[in-house]
Design a protein around this nucleic acid. Structure first.
Lengths: 105, 105
DNA sequence: TGACAGTATGTCGTATCTGACATAGTCTCG
DNA sequence: CGAGACTATGTCAGATACGACATACTGTCA
């Protein structure tokens, strides 16, 4: 398994041990997590491209800097709901969101 | 505004009064709700096409018939998280989910 | 009509998520 | 180095969503 992806999954709050342990994730679970990571990445890209700070984005969303940080790292305490709502609020279109999700892993 | 859509939004737990009231929804909120409705519709289509009952689907998901009914009606107590997880569990691909979301209203 | 399968709606205790705060880490300047 | 801007991580009380159950509605078939 890809090292970078592994640490990202761990960072997201999912324990990753040896290969057998990892494979305890069903394919749906894995797909769901990757989907979440894709949205998180897109949120960060959007923010950085606009030259915004996490604090600025937090204000726009009516949230806090720490939650924005957790969103961008796809923390386990962040839902797809929150990510999608945030992206839409920051100006992404429904179509863009769908494309991010549909994009192959 | 389209009558059918209006009743669907009401059913989803959103108050819809006159036009002014309706426009209190920001465009992001509206986009989010439509996105949810699209996923809900897709879940129902998937179930019906397979000839499954809500109870059968509930068992597959480890949930209950009532929650499946609420999912299909995009009830306000249902999150996009739950809809996406459910679709993936029922066999939809991440790509399909994305396409459903990206599809223009 | 009544019985039955399926779906919808309302409620509730528990589990999970959220914004907020504190604090720690990481850069980049001077 | 030290200060300041930005980001990451941990924690928590209050808010929200979850599965479950009860019950109501809707069809269909005899």
């Amino acid at each position: 398994m890809d090292k970078t992806k592994q640490s990202r999954l761990e960072a997201a709050g999912w324990r990753v041990g040896d290969t057998a342990d990892f494979l305890e994730l069903t394919s749906e679970e894995a797909a769901f997590i990757e989907l979440k990571l894709a949205l998180a990445d897109y949120l960060r890209d959007m923010r950085v491209q606009h030259g915004w700070t996490q604090t600025h984005v937090a204000r726009t969303l009516g949230s806090s800097q720490s939650r924005v940080a957790k969103m961008e790292s796809a923390d386990a305490s962040v839902t797809v709901d929150l990510l999608v709502k945030s992206l839409l609020t920051l100006g992404a279109s429904r179509k863009q969101v769908g494309q991010v999700i549909a994009r192959a892993a």
